[in-house]
């Protein structure tokens, strides 16, 4: 049966809560309402109010309480209603959760997941559209994942919940109901820290994740059909730790690299990916490593302005063609 991205996340929560009674869900409107995006729908009925917990609107507290519970062996899954609100919890994530294990010489772990519905293209304007993953990808102790398919949404969330370290899980709002796919029956995991080639190619590599994977795949198909270009698409899936081997392998394979993400250009993951390639695959390059990302602006509300600042299939296609001609 075809499963949407949002349903895949919901299934992962159901299955992991059933598997381990220490797993619980906490956040704003996650219980009675089933979440602002219905990601946690049905959990309250299935697992009761002790494990599916509505909180006040206090992101710092939600994460901080999660850290305290995790220190005693619980496995909280904490929802930030929108990823933009995660900034309110920044201290608790980077200072408390991320350092918990190191700070005390390994005495306790901090096995929690922060789910952050992220992404633009839904006319959410400045505080309901952001992709704040790069704030976290330079924090040791955290793991950061950003699934782009229903399969990975389910597989990565299940892995994140079972992981003993704090994981920030970025789920793209635009994908919730716009993509679906057949998922295998039964238990499956997507490993954290492992990228996946979603389309094989020889001429150019597009390295991407999250909201721009599908645009990249569409662009690759068009480039193949209209230009005869063989475009490889690597889905990073995990942003911390990055799968350096997969990044270097695709760079060596094609020699031309386009990095695409919906997060802003400056200080985005693309810079780190480019540096890895420059350091480890320099001799294999046939052109500059090119980045295509959101413009260095805020997220405007105006639909035409929003469209202008965000990467899309056409912009990716144009960048592929420019790079091919280099």
């Amino acid at each position: 049966m075809e499963v949407t991205y949002v349903r895949a996340i919901n299934q992962a929560l159901f299955e992991e809560m059933r598997r381990d009674e220490n797993v619980f869900v906490m956040g704003e409107d996650v219980a009675d309402l089933g979440g602002a995006f219905k990601v946690t729908e049905g959990l309250l009925e299935a697992f009761g109010p002790d494990r599916v917990i509505d909180t006040p609107i206090a992101e710092s507290l939600i994460v901080g309480a999660g850290v305290g519970a995790a220190a005693l062996g619980m496995r909280p899954v904490l929802e930030m209603q929108f990823a933009d609100f995660i900034s309110c919890a920044f201290d608790q994530i980077v200072n408390m959760a991320a350092t918990m294990r190191y700070r005390h010489g390994g005495q306790v772990a901090c096995p929690l997941v922060v789910r952050a519905p992220c992404g633009a293209g839904v006319h959410g304007a400045l505080f309901h559209s952001q992709n704040p993953e790069a704030w976290f990808t330079r924090v040791p102790g955290l793991k950061v994942v950003a699934p782009a398919t229903a399969y990975d949404a389910k597989g990565l969330l299940k892995s994140a919940i079972r992981d003993d370290d704090p994981v920030i899980y970025f789920e793209h709002k635009r994908l919730y109901r716009s993509i679906k796919e057949d998922l295998p029956e039964g238990d499956f995991l997507t490993p954290i820290g492992v990228a996946e080639v979603k389309r094989e190619g020889r001429d150019i590599s597009v390295i991407t994740y999250g909201g721009t994977l599908h645009y990249s795949l569409d662009a690759a198909r068009i480039a193949d059909k209209e230009d005869g270009l063989s475009v490889e698409v690597l889905d990073l899936r995990t942003l911390l730790p990055l799968d350096r081997e997969a990044i270097v392998a695709t760079a060596k394979n094609t020699g031309k690299i386009l990095v695409v993400h919906e997060d802003r250009l400056t200080g985005g993951i693309g810079g780190e990916v480019s540096a890895i390639i420059a350091e480890h695959a320099f001799e294999y390059l046939d052109g500059p490593v090119v980045r295509l990302a959101m413009a260095d602006t805020h997220n405007p509300f105006s639909p035409p302005l929003e469209e202008f600042v965000l990467p899309d299939t056409n912009k990716i296609l144009a960048a592929i063609r420019r790079l091919a001609a280099y």
Binding site: F24, D50, R51, S60, L61, V63, G64, A65, G66, V67, G68, A69, A70, A71, L72, G73, M74, P76, D91, Q92, N95, M96
Partner: peptide, 16 residues
Amino acid sequence: GGLPLAAGLGLSIHYK
């Protein structure tokens, strides 16, 4: 910074 964690410790005690 430690206060929210105290709530979490309390929550775990309460749950168990």
